[in-house]
Design a binder for these strands. Structure first.
Lengths: 224, 224
DNA sequence: TGCCTTGTTATGCGGTTGCATAATTCATAG
DNA sequence: CTATGAATTATGCAACCGCATAACAAGGCA
């Protein structure tokens, strides 16, 4: 009758919720949505399945929270680039485009996560709202960068240009995530910066080395 | 003891397989992958679940067949435009871009289906091969159109330009599928043609009305 | 008309999933 | 040092999943 239960430690609520969210994203990234069962997620987080229900009313709520966290992270990665970018509008735009087309933004796992949650978006209004917000947020960021460029452009033109530039970036991002071996180092960045420049009628390529002295290596201080 | 079985009709193999594939796509489009169970698919196709195993060795094979059918359909819709397009290279490219950015290619269901199968791609080698084949096939089509344009371009440039133009089209396609209400009629086509022209350094917009006299209306003979 | 192949239905099984609930152990307060 | 509450584990359950197999009937062929 000597039941040896699994020993455990009590953790702060924030920590446990975060651990469960991280485990959810990890499971989805590795094996798709179907492998992200409550049991698998819990095991990944180092807890038992029942605990999920203690922090989330249902599995769907956990998934929604994970999606929101993912989107927040991607948005944060984008704006982080801007805060560290130079002041010259041309260099700023170049740095933004370049950062969007290399790791950690370009990442096979990121696309899997994005695609997996996209179908949930179709059903769950909360996730749909999160999606639209993030999506248009990125485009607005781009439009602001375009508006700051030298030269006169009315707002209608700015919007059209932002839509076009956003599309190039998204398309290249997808290709880079799906077929990472199909492109040479820095090729996506080069194509992206050149194309955005062509759409806007300016030469951005000359700002590439200024905006980013080390175009192929991700920041080395990756995880804390 | 009077068991009244469901009455049925025997059908040709092609018809039944196609019906099952169509039902699979319909279920995935409506409720995501998780709602596409063998029972639901069979019910949608008007048969019982056991029949699936009579035509496919497993559910995975049915899903793979459905994915291949979807990709073939999308590719066919794009290349169909080319066979009816004029001979002038500029007009041909314009028609191709325009057709890729309006119905039936741009369609919310299409994106959901694409995104859903994308995660399977990550696991199943057969689906990954189908994906890469379709993906690069579309880009090669684009590169051939670019190569036919007036002006000298070496193959390296052609490849880079094809990658960039493909990215714009993909990105706009995604936005159009995700937020159909965010764009005016014909706006995506207009932006796409203008942007592709800008990337290639030529003016395509003037060929838009020639290439497609009715840019916003899908063909009216939709379903038979 | 009557048989015979096989397309189709019907039924059942082992495994898994999300969720509910009871049992237990950790951490803190007094 | 002990008591109390809550975080965590453990157990169980109803529903559902894909798949196997057996029973049946539809339609061609003699």
């Amino acid at each position: 009758m000597a039941l040896d239960r699994k020993p455990y430690r009590r953790e702060a609520e924030d920590k446990r919720r975060q651990a469960l969210v991280d485990a959810t994203l990890a499971m989805v990234a590795e094996g798709g949505a179907q492998s992200a069962t409550v049991r698998a997620i819990a095991q990944r987080a180092g807890v038992t399945a029942g605990l999920i229900r203690h922090y989330f009313q249902s599995k769907d709520q956990l998934v929604t929270a994970a999606y929101r966290h993912l989107m927040d992270r991607m948005t944060a990665e984008s704006s982080a680039v801007l805060s560290a970018a130079p002041r010259d509008p041309l260099a700023r735009l170049t740095a933004f485009v370049a950062a969007s087309l290399k790791p950690p933004v370009v990442d096979p796992e990121a696309l899997i996560l994005w695609a997996t949650f996209l179908q949930e978006t179709h059903r769950d209004p909360a996730m749909k709202a999160t999606h639209a917000q993030t999506y248009l947020g990125f485009r607005d960021m781009l439009q602001a960068l375009i508006a700051a460029l030298p030269g006169e452009r009315d707002e209608v033109s700015q919007r059209r240009l932002a839509i076009a530039c956003n599309a190039v970036i998204d398309g290249l991002w997808m290709e880079g995530c799906l077929l990472p071996e199909a492109f040479a180092r820095g090729e996506l960045v080069s194509i992206g910066v050149t194309s955005v420049g062509a759409i806007l009628g300016i030469d951005l390529a000359q700002h590439l080395h200024l905006a980013d002295p080390n175009p192929s290596e991700p920041v080395p201080d990756a995880a804390s």
